[in-house]
């Protein structure tokens, strides 16, 4: 299970809402994705190249315990 959604920003700046929601550079590149590990119910960040499917980085977000 993955989700790539970016956080809803507080302000959009110059961009229109439509452009922010829909438009992107969809060419192959390293993208930051959120992946979910079902067994541990853990979301973590993965840097994946969408052209090669190579994972170039994995980042564990702070767990609730640590952040508390």
């Amino acid at each position: 299970m993955t989700g790539v959604s970016a956080l809803e920003p507080e302000f959009l700046g110059d961009s229109s809402a439509g452009a922010w929601v829909f438009n992107r550079d969809g060419s192959p590149m390293v993208r930051s994705e959120w992946w979910y590990h079902r067994a541990t119910q853990l979301w973590f960040k993965v840097q994946r190249h969408t052209g090669t499917d190579q994972i170039v980085g994995v980042e564990l977000a702070r767990t609730n315990e640590e952040s508390g």
């Binding site: 299970m1 989700g3 959604s5 956080l7 959120w34 979910y36 119910q41 979301w43 977000a61 702070r62 609730n64 952040s67 508390g68």
Partner: peptide, 19 residues
């Protein structure tokens, strides 16, 4: 559930989301 858990992590919130 997944969305709530993701948002919590993305925002760095101090909350446990339990299904």
């Amino acid at each position: 559930v997944l969305k709530l858990q993701l948002y919590a992590v993305q925002l760095g919130l101090d909350v446990a989301v339990i299904d």
